[in-house]
Amino acid sequence: MTGLPEPTVPRLRPGVRLTRDPARGELALLPERVVVLNDTAAAVLAHCDGTTSLAGIVERLAEEYEGVSAEDVRELLLRLAQRRVVDLHG
């Protein structure tokens, strides 16, 4: 148990931008910080629009990926919230 709130309707925090760099791959850009994402992490963040619930994000990911783990998505969002990349509640 981490003590963090559960993600409900996650969204990117203001000032966070997703982009793709030819050398580094999928990135989230923050002031003075770069987050290098693997492809599934980038796919999760692409669905964090502040209106789609955690369950909805998992559902959308299941259209692209076989064997999506809701627990993986939840853990990722909690870790990204700790680093101020996402807000967990829109």
Binding site: A28, L29, L30, P31, E32, R33, V34, V35, V36, L37, N38, D39, T40, A41, A43, V44, L61, E63, E64, Y65, E66, G67, V68, S69, D72, V73, L76, R79, L80, R83
Partner: peptide, 24 residues
């Protein structure tokens, strides 16, 4: 006649952070 695109295999999402100390 349309083929559905094959789904990719899910793997654990992960990331690394780089503190740039400057505007990105």
């Amino acid at each position: 006649g349309k083929e559905l695109p094959a789904k990719k295999a899910w793997h654990r999402p992960d990331f690394v952070t780089i503190d740039t100390g400057m505007e990105v």
